[in-house]
Write a protein that binds this DNA or RNA. Structure first.
Lengths: 252, 252
DNA sequence: TAGTGGTCTAGACCACCGT
DNA sequence: CGGTGGTCTAGACCACTAA
């Protein structure tokens, strides 16, 4: 699978052509996915990988460039290239786009697990997670508060098969980003997500949980999160109070 | 300003060091900004630019890589590199993140200008556009409808100095993206933007304009748009009806 | 066919990090 | 100091486009 000898050229693979560096990227991705190098660990140097795959360092470099751009890997000059992890402060707010209106008052964030149970996937969840209807899923409900103010009410759905040992107790005992727990304990790394945002009125139960009036306008944020190879592994429905916060977005 | 002769090395410029390719990027950006090449036009080939700046083609290439990543230019293999423009179908929905819930029913979009007047900048607008308080600005109000349904009510603020000939008549006569008009007629190219999204209840006037009930939850989308060198040149406040649409976002 | 961007290589040197 | 990623060069060849 490597172009070992000088001058040997890589052929088109079926109808779709990939340049060499993209094939190398695929090989590295497979190693990441397979756990050859774990989150936070150092991967081999560019020179080493070049030797392993029988290509030039520049080609490996271009492959890693793309992996770094996709946040699968982090470069550190003088030290090496590391497998990205949700453990770092850097990565905390990569997926949560809610920000305080007055910048600076980041303040304390508190997460409280309300519920964690296993049940059969409702239709929409099964569809989003590409499961067969009625397959087992884990449902988590939790409340995020910022300096004591209840602000985000989340309902999270995960495929039951991949999250066997996930219990209310385990979640409640854990402090820190959920995605860090998922990657460390369940070998599932969240890579990217898409969100659909709408404005809705708070129903009675929601209003009570978030300590706002019934009918209060809230952001409804529906997220589908993907791991390697664009496989969906989480669906999330969040209700955000935007009195003192907003959903921030950068348009490139 | 160019490292013409072989072996001559570029020095640190004051306390901040830039690699050569980034300096080249700056020179190309300046030419874009100065109008040496207009939106939609072909810029010189990489070889030509390399000769002009006295660097290797690879260095120019890396500079253009970044410009392409920032959507300032568009590469077309076999043809050349073009100055990006808001005229193309590709670029239409780069800034408007509203999407129909049922994909596929893109349908007809209709834009109706409600108002266009010149006045002194209110405090928040002046601050966002980095103008002195009370400086002249243009205010535009418009309504976007999708298959006949009023959906977006926009209030747009522009610096008066840069948008002199902008009138209600000129806007109403124009069909197509506003940013295409701005770049063609006023030499102002919108590069990137940041948005802050909140959920709010429709007030009486808004409800009427959008044909919804008063108190209806709406998305409030506040945008600040920047041109070259991160100079803010537009502030926008939009109210979105999300009955059959949603605000779509990709989390990388 | 000529010209463009796209890929790949090999080798040099720089900037940064830890020991 | 040695090793890592970061920059820069020069040159070869490929893929695509237009004339």
């Amino acid at each position: 699978m490597n172009a070992s000898s000088r001058g040997e050229r890589v052929e088109r693979e079926g109808p779709t052509f990939s340049p060499l560096y993209r094939q190398i990227k695929g090989l590295i991705t497979r190693s990441l996915q397979g756990g050859e190098w774990k989150p936070g660990e150092l991967i081999p140097s560019e020179t080493e990988l070049a030797a392993r795959f029988g290509v030039s360092q520049g080609t490996v470099r271009k492959a890693i460039d793309e992996l770094a751009a996709e946040n699968l890997v982090v470069r550190r000059q003088g030290r090496g290239t590391f497998v990205a992890t949700h453990q770092e402060a850097r990565a905390q707010f990569r997926f949560l786009r809610l920000r305080p209106d007055q910048a600076g008052e980041a303040g304390v964030m508190d997460s409280r697990i309300l519920e964690c149970r296993r049940l059969r996937a409702p239709g929409d969840v099964a569809r989003a997670l590409q499961l067969r209807a009625g397959e087992a899923v884990v449902q988590i409900r939790r409340l995020l508060s910022f300096q004591g103010q209840p602000t985000v009410l989340d309902e999270i759905w995960l495929p039951g098969a991949q999250f066997r040992g996930l219990t209310f107790e385990r979640l409640s005992a854990y402090t820190g980003p959920l995605y860090a727990l998922f990657e460390a304990e369940f070998g599932t790394r969240m890579i990217r997500a898409t969100e659909r945002v709408k404005a809705v009125a708070a129903d009675e139960a929601t209003a009570k949980a978030l300590a706002v009036a019934a009918g209060e306008p809230l952001l409804l944020v529906e997220r589908v999160t993907y791991t390697y190879e664009d496989r969906p592994v989480e669906m999330r429905r969040g209700l955000y109070v935007t009195h003192r916060h907003h959903y921030r977005n950068e348009l490139g």
